[in-house]
C-alpha cells in the first residue's frame, strides 16, 4: 500500500497554511496527525496533490484552562490524557480519549483532526457536542466560530470550508457528573455505540443534562430532547427510559459489520442508560 505522489508542505504559521490551501484549492489537504488521512491515501481512496503538514504551527498547540477551556487543534490524545489540570477541569475528556485507538495512535492523533474530519466513527465530535464546544475556524476571510452542534452535515461533510483550518476548540468548564460510555468490538475500534453525558444535579434532582451519541448516524447526534427528559427528575428508571426514548428518535444507525440496525438501536439505549447512571452517580 503506497500512496500516490504529492507535494509536501510544512508551514510555520496559520496564515502560511491558509495560503497554501487557498492556492491549491481542492488539490490540497491539511494534515494533523494523519492517522485518518494516511491510511486513506495508502488505500488510494484519497488523492492529495499538496499535503499541508501542520505540525510546526505553534499557534495550533496548547491547552488553556480558565472559566472556559481552550484546546489547540494539534493537541494529541496522549497530551490530553496526560494533562492533569485538564483532567481535573473536564474529566470526561480523559475518560473518552482513553477509549480511542491505542497508545501509539494516541501519541500522534490529534483532537483537532478527530473533530474536523467528519468521520461519524470518531469519538471527540459527540463529546464536543455534549460539552457544547465551539470550533474556531480560520480562513482567508478571517476567523469564525461554529458550535460543534452545528458543525456536522453528513459523513465527512462539515461546515468547514476547504480553505479553512480548525484552530482551536473552546468550551465552558463542565459542571456536575460525566460519563463517556463506549461499546466496541475490541480495543482500538470505533464505537458500536457510544454516549457522552454531562449531568448537573442539586438536591438529588437533575438541573441540567447534555447528551450526545457517537457512530449511530452519519454525524454525531446531540439529543437535546434526551437531556431535557432528565431535567427535574431524580434520574430514576422511568427518567432514564424517557431519555432513551427521546434519544432513539434522534439517531439513525446503519447496518454494518458491527451489527444490524435493531441491535444498534437497542445497544444505544443500554449504553446511554449506563452513561446516565454513571454520570448522575458522579454529579
Amino acid at each position: 500500500m503506497i500512496p500516490a505522489a504529492f507535494e509536501y508542505h510544512r508551514p510555520k504559521a496559520v496564515a502560511d497554511a491558509i495560503s497554501l490551501l487557498t492556492q491549491h484549492g481542492d488539490d490540497a489537504r491539511a494534515m494533523a496527525g494523519g492517522h485518518s488521512l494516511i491510511p486513506m491515501m495508502k488505500l488510494r481512496m484519497a488523492h492529495i496533490g499538496h499535503l499541508v503538514d501542520l505540525q510546526d504551527i505553534a499557534d495550533l498547540k496548547g491547552v488553556t484552562i480558565g472559566a472556559s477551556i481552550r484546546i489547540g487543534a494539534l493537541t494529541t490524545q496522549a497530551e490530553l490524557i496526560n494533562n492533569t489540570a485538564l483532567t481535573t477541569a473536564a474529566p470526561i475528556l480523559k475518560e473518552a480519549a482513553l477509549q480511542i485507538a491505542d497508545p501509539q495512535i494516541r501519541n500522534v492523533g490529534t483532537v483537532g483532526g478527530n473533530v474536523a474530519n467528519g468521520d461519524p466513527g470518531n469519538d471527540m465530535p459527540g463529546l464536543m457536542q455534549c460539552l457544547d464546544a465551539t470550533y474556531t475556524l480560520t480562513g482567508p476571510r478571517g476567523s469564525r466560530d461554529v458550535r460543534a452542534r452545528d458543525f456536522y452535515q453528513s459523513a465527512y461533510f462539515t461546515s468547514r470550508k476547504d480553505d479553512e483550518l480548525l484552530v482551536a476548540i473552546t468550551f465552558a468548564k463542565p459542571v456536575g457528573g460525566y460519563a463517556y460510555e463506549k461499546q466496541k468490538r475490541k480495543i482500538g475500534d470505533y464505537a458500536t455505540a457510544a454516549a457522552a453525558v454531562q449531568i448537573a444535579a442539586s438536591g438529588g434532582r437533575v438541573t441540567a443534562a447534555s447528551i450526545a451519541m457517537t457512530n449511530l448516524s452519519d454525524t454525531p447526534v446531540y439529543s437535546a430532547a434526551a437531556g431535557a427528559a432528565l431535567v427535574g427528575t431524580a434520574c430514576d428508571a422511568a427518567a432514564i427510559k424517557s431519555a432513551v426514548t427521546a434519544m432513539l428518535l434522534d439517531i439513525n444507525p446503519a447496518s454494518d459489520n458491527r451489527g444490524p440496525v435493531e441491535f444498534k438501536r437497542h445497544l444505544a439505549g443500554v449504553i446511554l442508560g449506563r452513561a446516565i447512571a454513571r454520570a448522575f452517580s458522579r454529579a
Partner: peptide
C-alpha cells in the same frame, strides 16, 4: 497490516511510540 492496526512497525519517535507505517518520512524529518 499497513493500516496502523498491528503495530509490528512500531518505532520510537521523539520519545514516543509511533506506528511507522502511518508516518511519512517527510513528517519525521
Amino acid at each position: 497490516c499497513e493500516t496502523s492496526h498491528c503495530g509490528v512497525c512500531t518505532v520510537d519517535m521523539n520519545g514516543k511510540s509511533v506506528k511507522s507505517c502511518t508516518v511519512f518520512a517527510a513528517q519525521a524529518n
